[in-house]
Write a protein that binds this DNA or RNA. Structure first.
Lengths: 342, 342
DNA sequence: TTGTAGGCGTTATCAG
DNA sequence: CTGATAACGCCTACAA
């Protein structure tokens, strides 16, 4: 099918070695020879066989990423879409491609990592949405394979790898204090699943915010959701069923916040005046939501780009000035948090 | 680094050949031998070297896709995000991975295709957003490489390849007729760039709708945009500057419709009552927009899934019952198209 | 400046 | 049932 070095060698009358060197830009090839070989290569539409190169252990010019599968609710991918776009754009500028495997967390997911790493298909990996005792991180460390992470480990676990994270503990503290300043006294919280690494940070931030505002922490104001719209919807229903006097609900990501808004509106209440809602992430839909969503902004796209730069520096053996980056979150106030209570 | 067949052979005392066959599940290996070999392989954490397999010309279990780069406006990727998610989810179920290259259309883009196809990195390709005289299609046909397309060729060009498309000519006709029934007589249109394959279909649909409603086509009610929010914004400004009496604007995708809404609102006008707006695609943001966007629904996620099934059937040499699928569009009426004019 | 030879890890062919 | 051997396409000492 595709022309090989051998084909070019035969047609040009040179050896495979010379052809290889001419095409790879070595300077120990006669310029005339090189020109001739290049023109023959072009006429044959030569394109190097990448697997053959990779077999030799050369760079794959590919970054690997495994993202959570989610067949029913694809808008759930908002976070990953943005991260992926940031990663893809930055990679492209460095002439890197992306190898993506969509997997449900679990055994198959680890197999996907093994295929990429041990299978020699990528130079490095980007992982996201760290979990507690994340087996993926353990695996990559054990393999000594280059990787970078969006999000650090859960509190108390070691962070001995390069990452970029947003200080979401501060984020939740800011959000909680903001709502208290608006006059709220009963604030519900919808957390991510317990095994997500940042769940405890956000939980702690909420506690700190309450303490700072002089409010007591109430364990039954807190429920767990699945990070999807539907999880926010169910979480809000549960909270409002048991605590109809809640005046505000914080959801730990925007998707769940949107679900929370639906639940509130479904009860004939107004988001904002009746129940304030806030989220986390500032995905594009947050701005378009009705009412627009008050949230904590994470520069997801930029994080994706910076992760690529970090990863490629590691792959190339360059020094990383900063290998563990903690960004400060930014509060974005929109209509969903409602007016100051009087 | 990773254990190879050779390592297993040495440790188990069998030959590389036998190890290979034992691991690949051939039935001409003594069951005891196989068990022994498998346990040694596991103890060594063996993972097959994929490049080596690919070099032998075996399946890569990978689908390739090149998507347009877009560093500034990542939400522009809404269409591609959904398509990608559909493709990724379906691929995953077939144990396929995705090789993604983000590229600006042009010379580098074709190079990305060549790297994937001639470089033997993928079993087949999915392409999207067909252009006029699309060089990518010409290339893949010439190479005889399996591929499927989201979107057919521009009117008048041959469609001699497998695709799934929505009949967007009908879509624009429906949209135009709907606005005319609401009482609109001056309807602006923001088209995609001229080189996009579906531009003429949508343009024609608009003309048909006008004719059906007894209105005359006015060339200066029509402008071109770039498929991004900003393009819709600029297009609407241009239309409203020159024709302030327009009562409705159709944008040929939802992103441009969102930009159109901003432009209208920026002039202190109300979307709906003052100027009706309609889009095309029904991306998630359409539903959350304020006001919510009237649009033509395309089942982008499902199209992604079906494309994978078609592609893999082709790769496997199976018969395709349908290789050219034209879906009928569906009008989704929301608030942005406003009330019936009296 | 150019060519020869060997090997990356795998699988297919052919013998034993 | 098992094992040598060759080959996929490329790169890189080493030789000439």
């Amino acid at each position: 099918m595709g022309a090989t070095l051998k084909d070019i060698a035969e047609k040009s009358g040179y050896s495979v070695t010379t052809v290889s060197r001419a095409l790879s830009g070595y300077d120990d090839v006669n310029e005339q020879t090189r020109q001739h070989i290049i023109s023959v290569a072009n006429s044959l539409g030569y394109e190097p066989n990448l697997p053959a190169r990779h077999l030799r252990g050369l760079s794959t010019q590919t970054i690997g990423m495994v993202i959570p599968a989610n067949d029913q609710t694809f808008s759930a991918h908002d976070f990953f879409s943005q991260l992926l776009t940031g990663v893809g754009d930055a990679a492209s500028r460095e002439r890197y491609d992306l190898l993506i495997s969509t997997q449900i967390p679990g055994e198959e997911e680890m197999a996907a990592y093994r295929r990429m790493v041990r299978g020699n298909r990528v130079d490095g990996m980007v992982l996201a949405r760290t979990r507690q005792h994340d087996p993926r991180i353990a695996y990559l460390q054990e393999q000594g394979h280059p990787f970078v992470v969006s999000g650090r480990s859960a509190p108390g676990e070691p962070n001995d790898y390069p990452f970029i994270d947003v200080d979401s503990q501060a984020g939740l503290r800011i959000l909680t204090e903001f709502l208290i300043e608006l006059g709220h006294r009963r604030i519900g919280l919808i957390l991510p699943p317990e095994d997500i690494a940042y769940t405890d940070y956000r939980h702690n931030g909420y506690r700190e915010g309450l303490a700072h505002g002089g409010l007591e922490y109430q364990a039954d104001y807190v429920v767990y959701g699945d990070l999807l719209r539907s999880g926010g919807y169910r979480g809000a229903q549960r909270l409002l069923d048991t605590h109809p006097l809640l005046t505000a609900i914080i959801a730990c990501n925007d998707l769940m916040a949107l679900g929370t808004m639906s639940a509130i509106q479904g009860r004939g209440l107004q988001v904002g005046p009746d129940v304030a809602v806030a989220g986390f992430d500032d995905i594009p839909a947050a701005e378009y939501a009705h009412p627009a969503l008050t949230t904590i902004q994470q520069p997801i796209y930029e994080i994706g780009q910076r992760l690529v730069h970090m990863l490629l520096a590691i792959v190339r053996g360059e020094d990383l000035p900063e290998s563990q980056i903690l960004l400060q979150p930014k509060l974005v106030v929109r209509a969903s948090s409602g007016p100051k209570l009087t």
